[in-house]
């Protein structure tokens, strides 16, 4: 039983690799040394009974929680790990300003104008550092690495890296239309800045127009044709889930994390959702990580399945292997079949 992805040489085809991820809340270890690998173009599922630590693990991968130990690599880059020397960061904002400021005060003795200018420079350096800390441009991240500070990627940086996600309890922008929800998903794919918008440049207008067309395409792709002008909160439940998928797709990710994509759905909607996921993998070559507590959903579409119980990985393999694994049966399917 080999999947397409496994045949390719390792390294280049490995999209995401979680290495010995552990997350403890106080004394409670929610996830313990869990490994997970997602090859390019595959559908990987993470299952386990309620309270197995799935959501915690998912939140670590999505950049929302920092792990207690372990790391997550995406495309060969470490994106998530326990922060290192995070306390140093605010100090780096202040130190240049203080040094320059002291120089300014000293220079003030000699010449008032020079002193004032240098103090102004100190304030300017403070502003620059604070802004850099917020926008986190590449040079600032390199600078942090050089002084030995590591911080996990923020959720928005995860999107930039190529990871999109949906939420277990739907989190749409309720008071925005379906179309706008998808357009928000395209945020990083659009380039118009505030100045473009203020001047309403030709480029901005063209991009805006194009984004509408593309958003409509995404809506059509997930089966929401004709629903673009609905307020997200007024869509039926199943459509809201699809809209979330469309929004995640709009950032053109390489990997989509789906947190219980069929939660609360009826059998027909569930079937449609799984069909949609397989279709997207086929047509767009996307990879998926599914989190589910319902094993039946993932059996049909997953390439490989990882099973968590009490925060530990108890099995990993193809759906057949997992289905036959005695530990899985004990921990998870122990109860009589429904």
């Amino acid at each position: 039983m080999t999947t397409v992805a496994v045949d390719r040489p390792p390294g280049s085809n490995l999209l995401l690799r979680a290495h010995k991820v552990t997350k403890a809340f106080g004394g409670l270890v929610a996830v313990k040394e869990v490994d997970l690998e997602i090859p390019r173009g595959s559908i990987i599922s993470l299952i386990g009974p309620n309270g197995a630590g799935k959501t915690t693990f998912f939140n670590v991968i999505a950049g929302i929680l920092d792990p207690t130990s372990g790391a997550v690599e995406f495309d060969g880059q470490q994106v998530v790990a326990r922060p290192v020397r995070a306390w140093l960061e605010p100090i780096t904002w202040v130190v240049p300003a203080v040094i320059v400021g002291v120089l300014g005060v000293l220079a003030y003795q000699a010449s008032a104008v020079a002193g004032a200018l240098i103090v102004l420079l100190a304030i300017l350096s403070l502003i620059v550092m604070l802004l850099a800390a917020i926008v986190r441009p590449a040079w600032y991240r390199r600078f942090l690495l050089r002084v030995g500070v590591f911080k996990s990627a923020r959720p928005n940086e995860m999107v930039r890296a190529g990871i999109g996600r949906t939420f277990q309890n739907i989190r749409l922008f309720a008071n925005m239309t379906a179309l706008e929800n998808v357009q928000v998903g395209m945020h990083l794919k659009m380039t118009a800045n505030a100045a473009d918008a203020l001047l309403s440049t030709r480029r901005a207008r063209a991009e805006e127009k194009e984004s509408v067309t593309r958003a409509l395409n995404f809506l059509e792709l997930v089966g929401l044709k004709g629903r673009g002008s609905f307020m997200a909160k007024n869509l039926p439940y199943g459509d809201q889930r699809r809209l979330e998928v469309a929004r995640a797709l709009a950032s053109e990710p390489a990997l989509v994390l789906l947190d219980e994509p069929t939660a609360g759905m009826n059998p027909k909607e569930t079937r449609e959702m799984t069909e949609l996921i397989s279709r997207l993998r086929h047509d767009l070559g996307l990879s998926f990580l599914l989190i589910e507590h319902d094993m039946k959903v993932v059996m049909g579409i997953s390439d490989r399945i990882t099973v968590l119980d009490h925060g530990e990985r108890i099995a990993e393999g193809t759906p057949e292997e997992v289905r036959r694994n005695p530990r899985v049966i004990e921990a998870y399917l122990g109860k009589p079949p429904e």
């Binding site: 309720a174 008071n175 918008a197 203020l198």
Partner: peptide, 30 residues
Amino acid sequence: RLQGSRLGRAWMAVREDELAAASSGINTIT
């Protein structure tokens, strides 16, 4: 103009749900 732009949508997205906005690629703090 701003309201109808990419930036305006980002503002509204942050207002509606900050985490979802961040997970759509918006730098919420900026």
